[in-house]
Amino acid sequence: MQTLLKQMIQAGLHFGHTKDQWHPKMLPYIYQEKNGVHIIDIIQTWFYIRKVSKFLEICTAQGQKVLFVGTKKQAAQLIETTAIRCNSYFVNKRWLGGLLTNWSTLQNSIFQLKQLQQQPLSNRFQQKKYDKLIKYFRGLQNMKQIPDIVIIIGQQKELNAVLECRKLGIRTITLLDTNCNPLLADLFVPANDDSISSIKFILDQFATAILKGEALYTTSLTEQKTKSI
Rank of each mutant, 00 (worst) to 15 (best):
F55P: 01
I170T: 12
N108G: 05
A215K: 14
I84Q: 06
H23Y: 11
T226C: 10
K34C: 07
L99D: 01
S88C: 04
N160P: 01
K167L: 14
N108A: 12
R138T: 06
Q117M: 12
L159A: 04
A76P: 05
D194E: 14
M26L: 10
F15G: 00
F90R: 00
K25E: 12
K6E: 09
V37Y: 06
G12I: 04
V91G: 03
K19E: 13
I229Y: 14
N160Y: 05
G98I: 09
K25Y: 13
L96H: 05
K51T: 11
C180I: 09
Y217Q: 11
C180T: 12
N142F: 08
L113I: 03
T45W: 04
A209S: 08
S197Q: 09
I40N: 07
T226S: 13
Q126Y: 03
L221S: 06
W22Y: 13
N123S: 06
Q44S: 08
M8I: 08
L221C: 12
E214I: 14
R50C: 14
D193C: 07
T18E: 10
G70F: 02
C180W: 08
K65M: 00
I149M: 04
V162W: 03
R94V: 04
W22K: 14
Y48V: 02
V66I: 12
T218E: 14
I153T: 12
L67A: 03
N142D: 14
I210C: 10
K157W: 04
I146N: 07
L140D: 01
N181P: 08
L67P: 01
P120C: 10
I210S: 07
Q205E: 15
N35A: 11
K144S: 15
P120N: 14
W22G: 14
K132E: 12
D20G: 02
Q145P: 00
K93H: 02
L67N: 04
K225E: 12
T222Q: 15
Q155R: 06
K93A: 00
G213M: 10
E33R: 02
G12E: 01
W103M: 02
Q224A: 10
T81Y: 06
I152S: 09
G139K: 06
D186W: 11
E214S: 15
T71G: 04
F111H: 13
A209R: 02
S53K: 08
I79A: 02
F137E: 03
Q205C: 15
L163N: 15
L67R: 02
L187Y: 13
T172C: 13
S53F: 07
I229L: 15
K72A: 01
H38L: 15
A76N: 10
T101W: 05
L100F: 15
T60K: 04
Q7C: 07
L121A: 09
Y29S: 06
T45Q: 04
S195E: 04
G12D: 02
T208V: 08
T81V: 10
L116Y: 07
S220T: 09
A83K: 00
I146D: 05
E164M: 01
H14D: 09
P24N: 06
L203M: 09
Y89N: 00
Q62F: 10
D41Q: 09
